[in-house]
Design a protein around this nucleic acid. Sequence first.
DNA 1: TGTACATCAGTGAACGCGCGTTCACTGATGTAC
DNA 2: TGTACATCAGTGAACGCGCGTTCACTGATGTAC
Lengths: 203, 203
Amino acid sequence: MGRVSQAQAEENRRRVVDTASRLFREQGTHVSVADLMKAAGLTHGAFYKQFASKEALVDEVTAHVFDEIARRNAAGLERHDGQRDAAQRALIDAYLSVEHRDNAADGCPVAALAIDIARGPEGREARRTYAEGVADFAAFLAPAEAVADGGGVGGVGGGEGGEGGLARLCTLVGALVLSRATQGSPLSEEILAAAHAALTEAD
Amino acid sequence: MGRVSQAQAEENRRRVVDTASRLFREQGTHVSVADLMKAAGLTHGAFYKQFASKEALVDEVTAHVFDEIARRNAAGLERHDGQRDAAQRALIDAYLSVEHRDNAADGCPVAALAIDIARGPEGREARRTYAEGVADFAAFLAPAEAVADGGGVGGVGGGEGGEGGLARLCTLVGALVLSRATQGSPLSEEILAAAHAALTEAD
DNA sequence: TGTACATCAGTGAACGCGCGTTCACTGATGTAC
DNA sequence: TGTACATCAGTGAACGCGCGTTCACTGATGTAC
């Protein structure tokens, strides 16, 4: 196929990163370089003209995917005219939907990459990126009172999201992970409904 | 090494299952047969004298590990003289501890195996076992009111655990998974504390 | 604007390695007499 | 109770395969004149 224009090469690179960001969320970071490149419409040899190693790609994709989620949350806030409560409610509805459960490729990286990140080595760059993403997401979820007076409920606090946002994030992520693992059983939908009820009642 | 007594063979088999139940929770079900057998003190060839395939072992280990957790929960209830609230509180304390986070090998299989189960095929036996384990665990966690009048809060109900137990399980599992993935960052401990506060306040 | 040539993105075969699984072999165990 | 032999749990080398990575090669692109 010979050489390809610089513009084409950049587009190919972008397509590999995009494809990986979907495949990694859907199947985990263990998808093979060969499968990934085939899905991106290239042969596997080309991979090493663009990336130093598979680990480097995982790091880059992790950063890419968390950028995307941050942009999406910001856009959500804007769409609701800066109304924090309404934006949060919309996110919770979407997060705990059957569509989100069935579409990991487009879904939340916090839930999709948790295990792969946990099993990777501690010093890894992707791990830091992940922790930052968790903190940002929790901040977005923080309940109104906590945002208003800037403090946590129990005194641990200090984090950017406060306790309330972190606890809500745990419920969201746990529900998504469990509903995916029980897919095929009626339990799967019950889990989504139960978490939704817990997060939208009272508070 | 020649043949080994029937008693010895049975003990070896049990040791392989025990070792796998620890390694699978710690590193996932992708641990190799060779590594597993070495950890159990045998050579990898012996594996196929005891198990039909690696998949068969995964199924057996999943069942084994959920039996163990059910026994542990029952023992917890007994230790607290059947006082449901006290037993639940003790479980939540232990579940959200740093020790549990750092000791996946001995820890909750619902959290440790979630992704491996979710990525496996839908028809798999381990999947059914897993869903049952989730239902049992949720039933154990069901809030007192729900147990008393036998109904859920929002009307979905029908499940063995009711909504409250499922929602609590989501928070527990989400917190454990997230605290493991953020280990090394202060966020990791904050997550455990936030989930603990959310599960023990009010209700 | 047109020609000559170095560059380098993409190709596809090959590498060493670890995976799940198979198999001929060993020799203590368990059984038949 | 003692001897003869079939059984079979465990061994370790080997299988085909897919992994991450390397490399000689191709030929359109981009540049120098």
